[in-house]
Design a protein around this nucleic acid. Structure first.
Length: 832
RNA sequence: GCCCGGGUGACGGAAUGGCAGACGUGGUGGACUCAAAAUCCACUGUCCGAAAGGGCGUGCGGGUUCGAAUCCCGCCCCGGGCACCA
């Protein structure tokens, strides 16, 4: 596409200028009000893709806009540079991950810069940088010292493809690995955890005050999964202690203690520690079979077998019974894999009448049903819905709870349990502690050693960072490659000097990304990860921008880390939330699928940079639709991008003096047309300013296009010089955050100075005020006339004008108005 | 199953109670040109009509209102998230 100006030369020139002049470098002592705009730091996978372009366009626009609004905008950039792709490349090609990663970073950095996105590069972070590793390890040790990091043996998620364990958050709903797609299996391993559950309540409550997309908050709420209920003991029949044996009770968790009278059996998870004790000899083989099957099956298999039909093979009777404390009656105890050891107490009271899973199981095993909530009429009739009833209703078959509503009955039941000492009110969370160990090389080493005498000993701070050695075998063995380096593995105990071995696991890369935004505020302090005061100056991030895919993982971990660091005194105690506002932009789709490397449907931004240029590509991303919406990349997209380039050419011709299509300007008295252009200019400033504030960039661009459509014939005919200059200058200022290169170059040619150092234009409401507006006149809601009226028209005048309109007289055809709705100056509606 | 979004011309979208379809893409016609490109101008929801003009029209069915793409109720479809969590 032939262009009106040398796009490449202009864009390179300004990218160089912004870097050389440090235009977007700010410090904490800057007198302007601080603002922190952050785009999620990327994993460096090579040159930027279209998703990056979209992401960084929004971020860059905000940085430039806020700077023009007079704020000191902190705009740092860094790289989430630890991770599996580099290690997999090392396994494949033998290139060291560091060399591989640094090369990818150079490519990404270069392509980000060529978009015209500006950052304070002095603050650049790479997670694999030894300085960053050191502070990562210091923080780990502080978490360890405070009990927030701990080592435990637990059934963990193992991804055979990645040859490492995964956090719960990294396992998808279908039981596969979010990264490799392999089916995740369970393994019992000794691993490191962060005690995120300690903050479950705060993580939940804190969401209320965040200016985040509602769906992200909902996803986090669901993930934390708080549920209130009660735990109580079911005494095992014959084991109440009266025969001299140790009393034995099964503790269950329920959110519906009000339904206790409907308990017709109890269930324990296959992994429950009491299974052996509960199982009688004649049921031993059934129970053992079930436990074996449960242990061998993956979550995928378990879930594929859900439904009443397959429930029969998923449970077994233990032969024991427990006593329902409410009724005093005994009910049988089953083992079934629909009860999970990891939630609540791993045992439940089963109420088939009011729980669908219990209902299905009871059907399969012929267990009785006792309703404790009155279902709606017809529920149990022939042809009625039948089954478990989980809705509201009056309590029945529940003795002293009868007639109550469910919430009241719940409260009464808990009061009774507590007064009898049988149980108590409890809160359960779905959220599990964060498993941070990874059996991989390319990550931050966990800075502890194991000593036979002293157990787990942190590596002394003067020996940090613990860095991975280069002499390792990059083979995916299921054990960290670090374990293959004898030099690394064997060390001495800092406590006693005796022989010790190092921890060879590395940290989940989500640890790195849980505090990088804090390090950005002060990456220079020598004796701390960052100065708490300076962090407090910039934090929280005023606007965080990223993809929806991080709705749970990164955003939840970063929130946890911020709270933990605040409690450890590393950031001001009052800083409880890292990201005040979050924006999640839509993804780029092609052929209905997300555009990504793995799907093989990438469109490279670089090809556009050399043809239409960065400004046109940026403008396209802003113009194509609301920022939060997905973008469909179609056959038409190139035409739209060309259209954006065409628009910029028109702006160039209007703005750069010496173009023969601009008429010689006139001075003196303003004509009606001059006033109209001036009004349009001020209205544009007002409208675009408001559109920026509400993230409506697509309409802001549309308004600018509309303005050029109006302005172009004006400057080509007989323009007033002052009016035309004000129009063009205002337009350039409004475009400056969107298409920075064009705006900067055109402005420099017009005025000789730097547009991005100018302040944002302000509309004069008087000049923007319309002289006349179009009033719609309707008869019975149908438009019959349009009348030009003064904006300050009175109701009487409006009605008079409307009734006098020939078109209205025509439409009324002699009928008398029944009612006249007058909304001056917009509308009159005559009802007959 | 549950929880969010969303459904408007050929296409991306605009309008959040008051002129539906701004702006752009595509299309059609025209100006300029020897010609093409570029540029500029006009038209472009649908039906009836030569035109003037009029009817219809925002997934479907109802409702509220002088007035509904917009608010309410019910349904259909599409996208996303969650899901043996007791």
């Amino acid at each position: 596409m032939a262009r009106a100006y040398d796009v490449t030369q202009v864009e390179k020139k300004w990218q160089q200028r912004w870097a050389d002049e440090g235009t977007y470098e700010v410090d904490a002592d800057d007198p302007r009000p601080p603002s922190y705009v952050l785009t999620m730091y990327p994993y460096p996978s090579g040159p930027a893709h279209m998703g990056h372009v979209r992401n960084y366009t929004f971020g860059d626009l905000l940085v430039r806009h806020r700077t023009m609004l007079g704020q000191a905008v902190l705009s740092p950039f860094g790289f989430d540079s630890f991770g599996l792709p580099a290690e997999n490349a090392a396994i494949k090609t033998g290139t060291h991950p560091r060399i591989f990663t640094d090369a990818r970073i150079d490519e990404l950095k270069e392509s980000i810069t060529s978009l015209g996105a500006v950052y304070d590069w002095r603050r650049e972070i790479r997670s694999h940088d030894p300085e960053y590793i050191k502070w990562n390890q210091v923080i780990f040790q502080k978490l360890l010292a405070s009990g927030l990091a701990y080592r435990a043996n637990a059934p963990v998620n193992w991804c055979p493809g990645c040859q490492t364990v995964l956090a719960n958050e990294q396992v998808l709903a279908d039981g596969t690995c979010e990264r490799s797609g392999d089916i995740v299996i369970k393994r019992d391993l000794e691993q490191w955890f962060f005690r995120i559950t300690k903050y479950a309540d705060e993580l939940l409550a804190g969401l209320d005050d965040l200016d985040w997309p509602e769906r992200v908050k909902t996803m986090q709420r669901n993930w934390i999964g708080r549920s209130e209920g009660a735990e109580y003991d079911l005494v095992v029949e014959g084991r109440d202690g009266s025969d001299g044996r140790e009393p034995l009770a099964l503790r269950v968790f329920t959110t519906r203690p009000d339904t206790s009278y409907g308990m017709t059996y109890a269930v324990v998870a296959p992994e429950h520690p009491m299974v052996d004790e509960l199982t009688t000899p004649e049921h031993r083989s059934d129970v053992d079979d079930l436990r074996k099957r449960a242990a061998a099956s993956t979550d995928v298999e378990r879930m594929s077998e859900s439904g009443a039909a397959s429930l029969a093979k998923r449970g077994a009777f233990t032969g024991s019974s427990v006593v329902n404390p409410f009724t005093g009656g005994a009910v049988p105890v089953y083992v079934a894999d629909y009860v999970l050891m990891g939630y609540g107490t791993g045992a439940i009271m089963a109420v088939p009448a009011e729980d669908t899973r219990d209902w299905d199981f009871a059907q399969a095993y012929g267990l009785p049903v006792v309703r404790t909530v009155q279902p709606p009429e017809g529920w149990d009739d022939e042809g009625g819905p039948g089954g478990a009833y989980t809705g509201t209703g009056e309590k029945i078959n529940s003795e002293w709870l009868d007639g109550l509503d469910i919430p009241t009955a719940k409260a009464r039941a808990i009061e009774w349990l507590e007064s009898e000492g049988i149980g108590e009110r409890t809160v359960n969370y779905r959220l599990r502690d964060w498993l941070v160990s990874r059996q991989r090389f390319w990550g931050c080493p966990i800075p502890v050693v194991y000593c036979a005498d002293h157990g787990i000993v942190p590596v002394p701070s003067d020996q940090l960072p613990v860095l991975a050695p280069d002499d390792v075998e990059f083979l995916p063995t299921g054990e960290s490659p670090l374990a293959t380096s004898a030099e690394f593995l064997n060390t001495t105990c800092p406590e006693c000097g005796g022989t010790a071995t190092r921890e060879t696991d590395t940290m989940d890369t989500f640890v790195d990304s849980s505090w990088y935004f804090l390090r950005f505020t002060d990456p220079w302090t020598a004796d701390l990860p960052f100065d708490p005061e300076i962090a407090g100056h910039w934090m929280p991030v005023d606007q965080y921008i990223g993809g929806i895919e991080h709705a749970i993982l990164h955003l939840l971990y970063a929130r946890f880390y911020t709270k933990a660091l605040a409690d450890l005194g590393l950031v001001p105690a009052g800083l409880r939330e890292p990201f005040a506002r979050l924006f999640t932009q839509g993804m780029i789709r092609m052929d209905g699928k997300k555009m990504s490397k793995s799907k093989g449907n990438l469109v490279a931004p670089s090809s556009y940079l050399t043809t239409v240029g960065a400004d046109a590509l940026r403008l396209f991303h802003l113009f194509v639709g609301p920022p939060a919406d997905d973008v469909d990349w179609t056959d038409q997209t190139d035409s739209v991008i060309d259209g954006c380039g065409r628009y910029l050419d028109r702006v160039w011709r209007l703005a750069v003096p010496g173009d023969e299509t601009v008429a010689v300007p006139r001075t003196g008295e303003l004509t009606g047309e001059d006033v109209a252009i001036r009004r349009a200019t001020h209205r544009l400033v007002d409208r675009v300013t408001r559109d920026y504030e509400r993230w409506s960039y697509n309409t802001a661009v549309a308004a600018c296009m509309e303005f050029v459509n109006l302005l172009q014939p004006y400057v080509r005919a007989d323009p007033n010089g002052e009016v035309a200059d004000e129009a063009v200058d205002s337009l350039l200022l409004l475009l400056a955050p969107m298409t920075p290169h064009l705006a900067a170059e055109a402005w420099e040619r017009r005025h000789g100075d730097h547009i991005h150092l100018h302040s944002w234009p302000v509309a004069d409401p008087e000049l923007a005020a319309e002289e006349s507006v179009t009033m719609i006149v309707q008869v019975n809601g149908k438009v019959r006339d349009r009348i030009e009226v003064s904006p300050t028209l009175s109701e009487q005048e409006a009605e008079g004008l409307a009734l006098a309109s020939p078109a209205v007289v025509d439409a009324l055809a002699g009928r008398a108005p029944k009612r006249v709705i007058v909304r001056p100056p917009k509308l009159v509606n005559i009802v007959v």
